[in-house]
Amino acid sequence: MAKPKLAVVKMTGCAGCQMEVLRIEDKLLDLVGAVDVAYFYMATSANRHGPYDVALVEGSVSTPRELRELKELRERTKLLIALGDCACSGCLPSIVNWVPPQESAKVYERFLEIHSKKESFQRVYPLSAHVRVDLELRGCPPHRDAILEALKGALLGIKPFLREHPVCVECKLKENVCLLVCEGRPCMGPVTAAGCGAACPSNGRVCEGCYGPMSDANASSLAEILAKRCGLSREDLIGKFRKYAGLTPAFSKEASGGI
């Protein structure tokens, strides 16, 4: 049986998710043995066009060219996997959706001359806004184990096990001191999907919510708790919920100030 053809493709993002694919390191050779890496700009110069069996797509869609490429890719790909938050929920690039151009102009002196800005959409959306996505690997970046799980699932033709429960589960099982309850710090763990192994709280930093909403996120309750227990202002809360997954239905209300 021919080895399945894999493509790793980038849209608007920081390339950190592709880096995470390379970070599979100890399993990378096994991976290369099991799949035919047909397109991976960051890893090989021998890139071939589709069709592909599996495509890992990083980044959100911010230009007409990307949209065209994405649509073409979808047609040439059996299993299209959104790789990371930008691809799944918009993430940082999508913050532009909430920011009026005048605000950006305050930061960038010659705002109108920035090439990408002239060429790009006014609004930036995740892949699923434009094409059918077969699987979403969330996280900024997704954990290498989840990437491997997804590829194994693709090879076996099964739904991979991805953690949809909150970060609190992984955090508590590591027996970390709860930053929210015990230290009164504004942790997004209770509403954020796990899979990172509670990376931040295990290092004494609050969860920033980079995996986006867990399966049953109660954003309004957490917003109330963060305001009451940690003294977060309305603006603070908007920032917290907008940062990685403000476009998702579970966070959109809190990300736009509760309206």
Partner: peptide
């Protein structure tokens, strides 16, 4: 149910 975060902390502890 409106207050509950379904975070699993109660069960795991």
């Amino acid at each position: 149910g409106e207050k509950d975060l379904a975070c699993g902390i109660c069960v795991n502890s």
